[in-house]
Nucleic acid binder design. Structure first.
Lengths: 197, 197
DNA sequence: AATTAATTAATACAGTCGTATTATTATCGG
DNA sequence: CCGATAATAATACGACTGTATTAATTAATT
C-alpha cells in the first residue's frame, strides 16, 4: 500500500489548484479539467481523489474555511497590544495583497455560489463570522465598546461591512493600494468604541 | 419595416429573462439557451437581437443599473419626511421581498462576474454608489451628520455595508424575514447622525 | 523477486456550450 | 397584391462539460 501518507496532502494540493482557478476565472471556469491542468495532473488522477466535481468543490470550500479559522486562531494567540491584534484579525479577513487576497476572494465566490445551489448558509459555521464574534467579545472584555452599543447588531453590521469591503476590494483595486481598507476598518472601530484605535 | 417599435421592448424582455436565470442559477447557468427558454423564444430569435452572449449580458447588466437609477430618482422625488425617504432609498437597494430582491441579487452577481472578466469597475458609474452619495449629501444638507464624521469614509463605509448586507440577505433568508436588514440600516444611520431616525 | 494496491494516463460517451447558417414565416409600405 | 424586411425556427459545427471505463505504471509489502 504505497503512498498512502501522501493522500491527504495530495487532496489539499488539488483543492489549492481549484482555489487558483476560481480566483482567476470564477466558478464558471472551475471545471474538473481546468483544475486538473492547474494542478498538473491528469483527469483520471483527479477523479481518483474526488468522485465528482461536487466532492472536489465541497472539499475546497471546507478547506478554505478551515485555513481561515486556523489563521484566525494563530493571530489571536500572538502577543501584541489588544487593539493592534483586533485590527490585524479584521485586516486578515480582507483581500489585502498576499495570501489573504486569494482566501478572501475565493470565500466570497463560494458564498455566492452556495446561493444558487440551494444550500442554506449557516453563519455559525462560517469561520469569518466566528472570528468577528470573537473580536466583538474581546471588545466587550476590554470594556472598549460604547455603552449604548447593541452587541448583536454590531456583530451583524461588522460581518456585512467586512463582506462588502472584501467584495469592493476585489473589484476596485485602488481600495487596496491606498490602504483605504485599513482606514475604513479602523474608522469603523473608532465609531463603535470609546477610545481611539 | 414592421415591428420596429417592438425591438427595444423585446430586448428588454430578453434581458429580464436573463435576470431571472441569473437569479435562480447564477452566472454559471446564464447560457444563451437557458435564457432563450426562459424568454420563451428560440435560439435564433435571441441571436437576432443580440449578436453574442457578451452583448446580451452586457445589455442586461446596463439595464439593471439603469432601472435601479430610475427607481432611486423616483423615490427621491417622493413627498415624504426626509428621514423616511433616506431609509426608503437604502432599503430599496436591498434584496427585500419584491422587485428589489431580484435587482439587488442580480447586481451582485454581475459585480462579482465583472471581476473575472478583467473589467475595471468604476464606482462612479454604479447607480448604487451614486444613490449613496446622494443620500450622504442629503444628510449633510439636512445637517444631520455628526460633526466629526468623515464624509468620504462614511460614503465608502455605507457602500460596503450595503453590499455586504445584500450579500448576506441573499444567503441568509432570516435576515429578510425578521426585518433585520432594516434594523441594521436604521442602526447604522443612527450611529452616524446626531438625531434619532 | 513476486504480489498487491495505489496511482496514473488515455480514451470514450452523452450532454451542453457559443456561434453560425439556412430556410421559413409574419408584417408592413408600396 | 407584391416585394422588402423584420422576425422566427431549425439545424449544424466544433469545443467543452461531467462522468465513466480501461489499461498501464508505480511503489511498498511479503
Amino acid at each position: 500500500m504505497p503512498k498512502l501518507i501522501e493522500h491527504a496532502k495530495r487532496k489539499e494540493m488539488i483543492a489549492k489548484a481549484a482555489w487558483k482557478v476560481i480566483l482567476e476565472q470564477g466558478m464558471e471556469g472551475a471545471s474538473v479539467r481546468n483544475i486538473a491542468k492547474e494542478a498538473g495532473i491528469s483527469l483520471g488522477s483527479l477523479r481518483y481523489y474526488f468522485a465528482s466535481q461536487n466532492d472536489l468543490l465541497g472539499f475546497a470550500r471546507d478547506l478554505i474555511y478551515q485555513k481561515t479559522a486556523e489563521r484566525m486562531t494563530r493571530i489571536f494567540k500572538l502577543d501584541m497590544p489588544p487593539k493592534e491584534k483586533i485590527v490585524q484579525v479584521l485586516l486578515d479577513l480582507m483581500p489585502t495583497p498576499g495570501e489573504t487576497k486569494l482566501e478572501a476572494e475565493v470565500r466570497l465566490v463560494f458564498k455566492i455560489h452556495a446561493r444558487h445551489q440551494g444550500e442554506v448558509f449557516d453563519a455559525e459555521k462560517d469561520s469569518v463570522y466566528l472570528a468577528i464574534k470573537e473580536v466583538m467579545s474581546y471588545l466587550v472584555l476590554l470594556n472598549l465598546l460604547k455603552k449604548d452599543a447593541d452587541l448583536h447588531l454590531e456583530t451583524e453590521r461588522m460581518y456585512s461591512l467586512l463582506d462588502g469591503l472584501a467584495l469592493d476590494g476585489m473589484i476596485r483595486p485602488q481600495l487596496l493600494e491606498t490602504h483605504k481598507l485599513k482606514r475604513i476598518i479602523v474608522y469603523h472601530l473608532n465609531s463603535i468604541c470609546m477610545e481611539e484605535f
